[in-house]
Design a protein around this nucleic acid. Structure first.
Length: 558
RNA sequence: GUGCCCGUAGCUCAACCGGAUAGAGCACCAGCCUUCUAAGCUGGGGGUUGCUGGUUCGAUUCCAGUCGGGCACACCA
C-alpha cells in the first residue's frame, strides 16, 4: 500500500529512466524531488534541468523538455510542465491521491510506519540525570525530545532501546550524602558548619526523614530500606540515591516516559570495565605520564588539548567511565547510538569520540551521534527563575506537569528545534492553556470522533466508500497532507528532528478545521457522505498516530 | 581570548539539509453559531530573514567578516 503511495520514490525512478535516455553521461547527477509550495506548480517538482544546465551547456528549459519527452508512462502522473527557470513540475492524478484514504484506514495505527531503519538496533540515551534532586525543566526538555525521537525512530523501522545513565558515585554524590547526613543530625543550611557545596533544597529533609524512619524505597532499578543510622555514610548514600531515583521515576511516569535500561556508573568500576578501558588505552600508545597524572592524547583525534585520565590522587576523571560506557554500548550491538543531552555538555563529544577512536575497536569516527538541546529559561511572574539545585530555588518538571498538564508540557518542550533556546513562560502556559496548539490538534481529533459517533455506522463500511467524489479544493489538499505523513516521519528520523511532527500535525489540523467549517459530512447523499466520512476517519487516524509519536493523548471528546 | 549553538512579523516559532511570491499561532482590526463541538472558521494590516561582503541561474539556507544572546573551555560531573 505504502509502495503505491510513495510518489516521490516512483517519480525518482521515472526521472532516472528519462535521464538514462536523455543524458547517459549525467547519471551521477542527484535527482532532487520535492513537494511544491503552490498548487499551481503541481504536486512535486524536480530541479534536475537547472542542475544540468552548466555541465551540458544547454538552457535549462531545453533540457527539461528533453527529459519530459523521455519520461515513461505512469498511472499516477496527470501531466508534467516546465515552469520558471526550468523546474519540472509534476501533477499527480486525483485518483492516485484518493487511494490514500483507504490506505490509511487499512493500515490503521501502522500508517506512517517505514522500513528505513530495517530493524537495526539504535540506542538512545537521554535525561541521564544524576540522582541528586528532582528533575527540572531542562531535564524535561531532554525527556520530551528524547522520547519523541525514540518514537520517531521506532516508527521509521528502527529497533529502539531507551537508556538512562547515571552517576551513583563521585563528588556530587558525596555532597548529597553529606547533606542528607547533616539533615539527619538536624543541621540546617543556615548553620555556619553547612558546607558551601552542600545541597540546600528542602527535598533533602524528606530524604533524611525517610532514612531515619527506615522506609522502604523502590525505584525502577533500586530497592533499599533505610537503616536509620546517622553515622553510616555508605547506608545514607545508597538510600539517598535510591530515594531520589524513585522521585525521578515518579516524575518520568507523570511525563509518560519509560526507559528500557538503566546504567550505573559504579557498575563500570565493579565489573572492571573502566580498568579494562584504561589498559586498552595505555596499550594503544595514545597515553603518557606527566605531572603525576596519566593523560590521553586526545589531540591525536581533533581535540584542542590533551585530557587527564587518571588524576594525581589516583582517581579517574569522569570521561574515562564515559568511554568505557560507550565501548560497552558498542559491544552490546548498537551500530547506532544517539545521545540526547543539554548543550552545556557539548565539550564531552570530542573527548568521548577521541577515547573511542584511540581504542581502535573498529568504531566509526563520528560514533555516537548527539542531539543537543539548548537551555530552557523559565519565566514566572514575568521574572526569570534561576535554576539552582544547591540553592533549592527550582522549577521542577512535576510542578510544570501539575500546572500545565502532561500533554501541553510535552508538546511545548518537543515542538521546537532542539538547537534554539526555549523560554517557558509558566504564567502564559497556565493562563492561556486553552490556546495551546496541542488543544488545537486534539480538538480536530475530537471533532471527527463526534461526527463518526453521530453517524453511528460501521467503520468497515468506510472501506467501501467511493473516494472519487473527493475532489474539492479542501479535499485535495487534505489528501496530499495525508500522503505526506510517512515522508515527514522519514525526514524527522533522518534529521533527528522530532519537532517536525508537531508542525505537520498543526498543519493537518488546520486544514481539517477549514474543511469542517466549509463542509457538512452527514448529508443525504449516501455516496458523498461515506466518502467524506472515510476521509475524516483517515485524518483522525493520522492525527492519532502523530500525537502518539509526540506522546500526547488523542481524546475522543473535549 | 578559543570552540559550539542561535539571531526570521510587535511576541513565540516554521521553512522538507541551495529553489519559484519567506509561512503559521498569539496579539490587533472586521465578519461567521436555528445545521455534525465557536478550544473553530473567513478576511485584513504587519518583513531590507541582525549587519556587510563573497560563491551562482537562484542564498533565510553555503563561505568570510562583524554585532548581539546562550553554552562550554578543570587533575569537577
Amino acid at each position: 500500500m505504502s509502495v503505491v503511495l510513495n510518489f516521490k520514490t516512483q517519480l525518482h525512478e521515472i526521472f532516472t529512466h528519462a535521464l538514462r535516455d536523455f543524458a547517459p553521461d549525467q547519471l551521477n547527477a542527484t535527482i532532487n524531488i520535492e513537494r511544491t509550495k503552490q498548487s499551481s506548480h503541481g504536486d512535486y517538482s524536480c530541479n534536475l534541468a537547472m542542475q544540468l544546465a552548466k555541465p551540458m551547456r544547454k538552457s535549462p528549459r531545453e533540457i527539461a523538455n528533453g527529459i519530459i519527452a523521455r519520461m515513461p508512462q505512469s498511472g499516477v502522473v496527470e501531466k508534467v510542465e516546465v515552469a520558471g527557470a526550468g523546474f519540472i513540475n509534476v501533477f499527480i492524478t486525483t485518483v492516485a491521491k484518493q487511494s490514500v484514504v483507504k490506505g490509511v484506514l487499512q493500515s490503521g495505527n501502522n500508517y506512517g510506519c517505514l522500513q528505513v531503519g530495517n530493524g537495526r538496533k539504535v540506542g538512545v540515551e537521554f535525561v541521564s540525570a544524576n540522582p541528586t534532586g528532582p528533575l527540572h525543566v531542562g531535564h524535561g526538555r531532554g525527556a520530551a525530545v528524547g522520547d519523541c525521537l525514540c518514537n520517531v525512530l521506532k516508527t521509521a523501522g528502527w529497533d529502539v532501546t531507551r537508556e538512562f545513565y547515571y552517576n551513583d558515585a563521585g563528588a556530587q554524590i558525596d555532597n548529597l550524602t553529606l547533606s542528607v547526613q547533616l539533615r539527619c543530625k538536624g543541621i540546617t543550611p543556615d548553620d555556619p558548619s553547612w558546607p558551601e557545596s552542600g545541597y540546600r533544597g528542602n527535598y533533602i529533609i524528606d530524604v533524611a526523614r525517610s532514612y531515619m524512619a527506615k522506609d522502604r524505597v523502590e525505584s525502577d532499578d533500586q530497592h533499599i530500606t533505610g537503616k536509620g543510622d546517622v553515622d553510616d555514610a555508605e547506608a545514607i548514600r545508597h538510600f539517598a540515591v535510591a530515594y531520589l531515583r524513585r522521585e525521578q521515576d515518579l516524575d518520568l511516569q507523570a511525563f509518560q516516559v519509560k526507559f528500557d535500561v538503566f546504567s550505573l556508573e559504579s557498575t563500570l568500576y565493579t565489573e572492571g570495565k573502566v580498568e579494562e578501558t584504561v589498559n586498552k588505552l595505555i596499550a594503544s600508545g595514545h597515553t603518557y605520564q606527566q605531572d603525576d597524572a596519566l593523560w590521553l592524547r586526545t589531540t591525536d583525534f581533533g581535540d584542542d588539548k590533551d585530557r587527564v585520565m587518571r588524576k594525581s590522587d589516583g582517581g579517574y576523571t569522569y570521561f574515562v567511565p564515559d568511554v568505557a560506557y560507550h565501548l560497552d554500548k558498542w559491544r552490546r550491538g548498537f551500530e547506532r547510538v544517539i545521545n540526547e543531552q543539554g548543550s552545556d555538555h557539548h565539550s564531552t563529544i570530542t573527548r568521548v569520540r577521541a577515547g573511542l577512536q584511540a581504542l581502535s575497536a573498529g568504531i566509526p569516527k563520528n560514533w555516537p551521534d548527539y542531539v543537543l538541546h539548548q537551555m530552557v529559561t523559565v519565566l514566572k511572574n514575568g521574572e526569570e527563575v534561576k535554576i539552582s539545585k544547591r540553592a533549592g530555588s527550582y522549577v521542577t518538571l512535576r510542578d510544570l506537569i501539575d500546572e500545565v498538564g502532561c500533554d501541553a508540557t510535552r508538546y511545548f518542550l518537543a515542538a521546537r528545534h532542539p538547537d534554539s533556546q526555549l523560554v517557558f513562560d509558566i504564567d502564559l502556559a497556565k493562563s492561556q492553556s486553552n490556546d495551546n496548539p496541542v488543544y488545537y490538534i486534539q480538538y480536530a481529533h475530537a471533532r471527527i470522533c463526534t461526527v463518526l459517533l453521530q453517524w453511528g455506522g460501521n467503520n468497515a463500511a468506510l472501506l467501501k466508500a467511493e473516494t472519487e467524489v473527493l475532489n474539492s479544493e479542501y479535499e485535495t489538499k487534505l489528501l496530499q497532507c495525508l500522503i505526506d505523513f510517512p515522508q515527514v516521519i522519514e525526514v524527522a528520523a533522518e534529521e533527528l528532528a522530532p519537532h517536525l511532527i508537531a508542525f505537520y500535525l498543526k498543519e493537518l489540523a488546520a486544514d481539517f478545521h477549514s474543511y469542517y467549517n466549509a463542509t457538512r459530512f452527514l448529508v443525504e447523499d449516501e455516496k458523498i457522505k461515506l466518502a467524506r466520512l472515510a476521509l475524516i476517519a483517515a485524518i483522525a487516524q493520522v492525527l492519532k498516530n502523530g500525537l502518539a509519536i509526540l506522546g500526547v493523548s488523542a481524546p475522543e471528546k473535549m
